[in-house]
Computed example of a mutant assay.
Amino acid sequence: MPRGLLVLLAAAALLTGCAGSGTRASPLTGTSAPADAPVLAVKVDNSPAGRPWTGVEDADVVYVEPVEGGTTRLLAVFSSRLPASVGPVRSARESDVTVLGAYGRPGLAFSGSAPELAGTLAGASLVPLTPQTAGDAFRRDGARRAPVNLYADPSALLAAAGGATPPRDIGFRFGATPAGGEVVRHRDVTFGTAELGLTWDAVRGRWLVEPGGGDPAVPATGGEPIGAATVLIQRVTTRPSAIRDAAGAVSPYAVTTGGGEAEVLRDGRAYPARWSRPLPTDPTAVLGPDRLPVSFAPGPVWVLLVPVDG
């Protein structure tokens, strides 16, 4: 049987196979998860003032998105596990709508948005969750200063998110370590003026996340460093959006449809790839030079949307 067909059959079996009653292999992580748990995405601050993060360590997928001023924010996607709290919660951007287009109808928690984005959010296939629409799910931390003091209870968010759907195929393929690749123990990734370091920890089997190129991130509640089984470095073009922040800076729109260069980090190795996604509702295919899917390691995935000129 051709290798390409074997890969597709294995991927299909992984996505549809059951790991037990009421569970399945999650299309977001490749590991066992509740079959009907809805998807919740939360916009999280990534400035020095907003760290350490709360709850991000439990996310299935974390997107690092470019925003105004060459900085970044996180879009943390939960389904398999829900933390008790997540934050600091920040405002939505136009890029979030396109990124989440492949998820069906997820909940999206955010602190607010520019007026120009309100119509886009209202017409998108998602359930918007803000202090105005799900007030009981949000709280202010008196030990922090605004705007990095807003936190949310994911369970309460989902209780308010009627109609949020379970995860579906967004294009990730999980499996054994591919042949080849380059041995890599560290990567520094630049987003304009922001930097993110990634260091392979063979004991934990994770790429430890180092915001600002500093020490590995640790949850605000303590515990193990935050890391990813797989990191997808996705090179994207950006264009100015119609959205400006409170200071008047133009917010970049990360184009996650079309295609471009990529790199997959897993198991201490790096694999060159290309990504493609014709429409916002389509999965993102990640193919190697042989035009076959590059398999991810089962576990949490971080996707870095890196501007091509970054």
Rank of each mutant, 00 (worst) to 15 (best):
V264R: 06
P278T: 09
V294K: 00
R266S: 15
F296I: 07
L265T: 10
V250N: 03
T281M: 07
G268Y: 09
P278H: 04
L265W: 04
G259W: 01
E261H: 10
S295F: 15
D267H: 08
R291K: 12
P272D: 10
G288L: 01
V255A: 02
R266F: 10
Y253K: 06
D290A: 05
P283W: 01
V264T: 11
A270P: 09
T281A: 12
V255Q: 04
Y271P: 09
T257S: 14
V255M: 02
E261Y: 11
V294P: 07
R291I: 10
V255R: 01
A297S: 06
R266M: 09
S295C: 15
G260W: 15
A285N: 15
L287Q: 02
Y271G: 10
P298W: 11
A297K: 07
V264M: 13
P278N: 10
G258E: 06
S276M: 06
L292W: 03
S251F: 11
D267L: 14
S276D: 08
D267Q: 11
T281V: 11
T257D: 07
D290N: 12
V294H: 10
P298A: 06
L265R: 00
G260S: 02
G258N: 04
P293F: 02
F296P: 14
L279A: 15
F296D: 01
P283F: 05
E261I: 08
S251E: 13
S295R: 14
A285G: 11
Y253F: 12
P252D: 08
L292I: 08
G268S: 12
P283D: 07
V286L: 13
P280C: 06
R291W: 15
S251I: 13
D290M: 09
A254V: 13
D290H: 03
S295K: 09
Y253P: 10
P283N: 01
G299I: 12
A273E: 01
R266C: 10
F296L: 13
V255W: 12
G268V: 13
P300S: 00
A273C: 09
R269T: 10
R277G: 11
G258Y: 12
L265E: 12
R266G: 06
